[in-house]
Every structure is written in structure tokens, then in C-alpha cells.
């Protein structure tokens, strides 16, 4: 149990650092940017404490906001994602997800992909909608969401393969 907490704290710090140092500087064509820091919320243990996840996601988003001058935009998207996570699990892995131990950081299956897709799209649409906050930008926002979500999913999958624990 102790090691799970340590792994999560480590992930929290590592992903934030990676996001701020590397991915925040990446931008292609003004539309495509990646936010792989939400991998923290995606990879959080399925049967882990939900209150802790909510609080951790809130601070994860708030730190991102501090660094990108965006008020509470990231925090809102993260808290929403953390709250909706169980429903996404239910949708992608079937009703019995709580009894079988779902492991996300493993070989990519359609179920796992569905889950990541749902999570990333929810986070990105909330993020970009709140960021633009103007109805005139709606098409722009949708384009941004689709392109960035694709890029984030790609980065997430690569990162999952990279940080996958060696021991099965």
C-alpha cells in the first residue's frame, strides 16, 4: 500500500515537471498541444481513495494554472475528469470493473483505448471551452480539441509504455 502512495506522488511530480518543462513549450500550427499530465488521473489505482484523487487532481490542475496564467481552467477540467473516471471505467470495462483488477499500464487493448479516449476528450473539451470562454470561437475550440486530444492520446500511450513497471 505504501509503495502505491509513493508511486503516485512520484508520478504527480514527474508528470507535472514533464508537462511544464517540455510539453507546454510544444505547439504545432497554433492548434495542437499535448497535456499528458492528466495521465496521473488516468493511471490512479482503480480502487484507490476517491477523495484523495479529487483533492490531488484539484492541486494538479491548480499548479498547471499557476504556471500558465489560466485562472482555474486546468483545475476545473481535472476535477471533472477525476469525478467522471468511475463512470468511464464502467463504460469501457463493463459493470464488473470493480471486482476484477483493471490495470491500465499494460498492453493496449480496445477497452483501455476507449477509456483513455473518453478521459482525454472530456478533459480537453472542458479545458478549451473554458479557456476560450466565447461562443464565437466554438468551431476553433472543437478543432483544437480533436487535434490536441489525438496528440495527447498518442503521447499518453507512449508514456504508458515507457513508465510501465518491469515486474508483472
Amino acid at each position: 500500500m505504501n509503495s502505491t502512495i509513493l508511486v503516485n506522488i512520484f508520478r504527480f511530480v514527474l508528470l507535472l515537471a514533464l508537462q511544464i518543462l517540455v510539453f507546454n513549450n510544444m505547439n504545432f500550427g497554433g492548434y495542437i498541444s499535448a497535456f499528458p499530465y492528466i495521465l496521473f488521473i488516468i493511471l490512479y489505482p482503480v480502487n484507490g481513495n476517491k477523495a484523495n484523487l479529487l483533492i490531488a487532481s484539484f492541486f494538479l490542475g491548480l499548479i498547471m494554472d499557476l504556471f500558465s496564467n489560466s485562472g482555474g481552467v486546468h483545475a476545473t477540467a481535472c476535477v471533472l475528469l477525476a469525478h467522471l473516471r468511475p463512470y468511464f471505467f464502467k463504460f469501457s470495462f463493463g459493470l464488473s470493473y470493480e471486482y476484477q483488477t483493471v490495470k491500465l499500464n499494460d498492453v493496449l487493448t480496445p477497452e483501455r483505448f476507449t477509456f483513455i479516449l473518453l478521459a482525454v476528450s472530456t478533459h480537453h473539451i472542458t479545458l478549451f471551452l473554458l479557456e476560450s470562454f466565447q461562443i464565437t470561437f466554438i468551431l476553433d475550440v472543437l478543432l483544437r480539441t480533436v487535434l490536441s486530444a489525438l496528440f495527447t492520446i498518442l503521447t499518453c500511450i507512449i508514456l504508458i509504455y515507457l513508465i510501465k513497471p518491469n515486474k508483472r
Binding site: G61, G72, V73, L80, L130
Partner: peptide, 14 residues
């Protein structure tokens, strides 16, 4: 509670 706080921060930022 958290959603309320973050949403109000987000809206205030605009």
C-alpha cells in the same frame, strides 16, 4: 466544492 472553487477561479480569470 472543488468544482465550485475551480470554476469560479476559471470564470474570474476572464
Amino acid at each position: 466544492l472543488l468544482l465550485g472553487i475551480s470554476l469560479s477561479l476559471a470564470i474570474q480569470s476572464h
